[in-house]
C-alpha cells in the first residue's frame, strides 16, 4: 500500500522524464496506427470462427482511406454541434491515449488527469456524439442518443467503484501510479479484490465501447442500434473520424485493462529505447490476446434486450462493490 505512494512520490519529484515523454509520443502513435488493426483483427477472428473467410485484418484501414476521399454531406437543419462532434470525440480519444499508461507509466501527461478524469473524458466524447445524434432531428438519431445516454449513466457507478477498488491499494487514483504499484507488488494482482475488479471492468469496457452483449457493432437492423443509430447521418471524413476514434477508445481501454492486471513489460521513467520497445511489444501482445478472447466470446453471445442491460450493469456494480469491500477486509498478503 505504501509502496505505491512512495513510487508515485518519487515520480512526482522527478516531474518530467524524457523517457516518459518519448513513451507518450510512441503510445499515441501506436494507438492511432494500431486501433483500426485491432478492429480488423477482431472481425477476422470472428469471421474465421463463424466459418467465413473474412475481409482481412487490414480492412478497417482500407475503409478509412476510402472514407477520407468521400464527399462531405451536411444534412439540412443541422448545426455546428453536428460538424464538431467527431472532432471532440477524436480529441478526447487522443488525449486519453496520451494519458493512460499503454507503453509507459511515466507519461508526462499522467498528472493532467487521473482515472476519474479519464472516465470523464470518455463521457465527454460520448456526450458529443449523442448531441450530434439529437441534432440531426431524425427518429433514429434521437433513439440512439437516448439509449447511449441511458447506458452511459448506468455504467458510471460501476466504473467509479471498480476504479475505487484499484485506487485504494495503490494509494492514488492516477493510472500511472496504480500500474506501477501493480508492477512493484505482483502478489496484489492475484487477490480476490483484483479479480472482482477485473470482472467489473470487463463489463465496463464492453458497455463503453458498444460491444456485445450491450450493443452489436456489426448490426444492420436500425431498431436494435445504439452507437450506429447516432452516426447514421455521417459520411466521408467525419464518419472516418468517428470510426477511428471509436477504435482508439476500444484499443486504449483494452490496453489499460491488460496493464492494470498484467502490468509486466511496461516501461517506466527509467526505461531506455529498448525498454520502450519492449513495452510496445508487450502491450501489443496483451491487446492482441484480449481482443482475440473478446471476439471469440462474441461468437457465442447475442445482444441483450435494452431493458436487460441495466441488470447486467447492476450486477457488475455489485461485483465492483464487493471488490472495494474485499480490498479493505482482505488486504494483499505482502
Amino acid at each position: 500500500m505504501s509502496g505505491g505512494t512512495e513510487v508515485y512520490a518519487a515520480q512526482a519529484a522527478d516531474g518530467f522524464s524524457a523517457s516518459g515523454a518519448a513513451g507518450a509520443v510512441l503510445q499515441v502513435a501506436a494507438v492511432v496506427a494500431g486501433a483500426p488493426l485491432v478492429i480488423g483483427w477482431m472481425r477476422q477472428v470472428r469471421a474465421r470462427l463463424e466459418g467465413r473467410a473474412g475481409a482481412g485484418w487490414l480492412q478497417p484501414w482500407r475503409d478509412l482511406r476510402k472514407l477520407f476521399a468521400k464527399q462531405d454531406v451536411i444534412p439540412r437543419g443541422t448545426t455546428r454541434v453536428f460538424t464538431t462532434a467527431p472532432l471532440v470525440l477524436a480529441a478526447t480519444s487522443l488525449l486519453i491515449a496520451a494519458i493512460v499508461p499503454v507503453v509507459t507509466t511515466a507519461s508526462p501527461l499522467d498528472e493532467m488527469g487521473d482515472l476519474f478524469a479519464v472516465v470523464g473524458l470518455l463521457l465527454v466524447g460520448t456526450v458529443a456524439l449523442t448531441l450530434a445524434g439529437l441534432d440531426t432531428g431524425t427518429a433514429f438519431g434521437g433513439m440512439g442518443a437516448s439509449r447511449e445516454v441511458t447506458i452511459a449513466a448506468l455504467v458510471e457507478p460501476t466504473i467509479l467503484v471498480a476504479g475505487l477498488a484499484l485506487s485504494v491499494p495503490a494509494g492514488s487514483s492516477n493510472l500511472g501510479a496504480i500500474v506501477e504499484s501493480a508492477v512493484a507488488d505482483p502478489g496484489a494482482v492475484a487477490t480476490p479484490a483484483a479479480a472482482l475488479a477485473f470482472i467489473a471492468l470487463i463489463v465496463v469496457v464492453l458497455a463503453e465501447t458498444g460491444r456485445l452483449p450491450v450493443d452489436n457493432p456489426s448490426t444492420h437492423l436500425e431498431l436494435t442500434m445504439v452507437h450506429e443509430a447516432m452516426v447514421l447521418e455521417y459520411t466521408g471524413a467525419r464518419l472516418a473520424l468517428v470510426e477511428w476514434a471509436s477504435a482508439i477508445r476500444l484499443t486504449v481501454l483494452l490496453a489499460l485493462l491488460a496493464n492494470l492486471f498484467v502490468p509486466w513489460g511496461i516501461a517506466d521513467a527509467g526505461s531506455g529505447v529498448a525498454g520502450l520497445l519492449v513495452g510496445l511489444v508487450a502491450v501489443a501482445a496483451k491487446v492482441c490476446v484480449l481482443a482475440t478472447l473478446l471476439a471469440a466470446g462474441e461468437v457465442f453471445l447475442a445482444k441483450l434486450r435494452l431493458f436487460r442491460v441495466p441488470e447486467l450493469l447492476a450486477g457488475s456494480f455489485l461485483i465492483g462493490l464487493l471488490a472495494v469491500t474485499a480490498s479493505y477486509f482482505l488486504p494483499s498478503p505482502s
Binding site: L87, A90, G113, R238
Partner: peptide, 24 residues
C-alpha cells in the same frame, strides 16, 4: 497523492481538436 489539472485538460482537448481537424 491524487493529481489532476482541469486547465491542462482543456488545453489537451483543444490541441486534440486541432490535430483531428488536421487529420480530416
Amino acid at each position: 497523492s491524487g493529481a489532476m489539472s482541469p486547465g491542462l485538460l482543456a488545453v489537451g482537448v483543444a490541441v486534440g481538436i486541432v490535430v483531428a481537424l488536421a487529420a480530416t
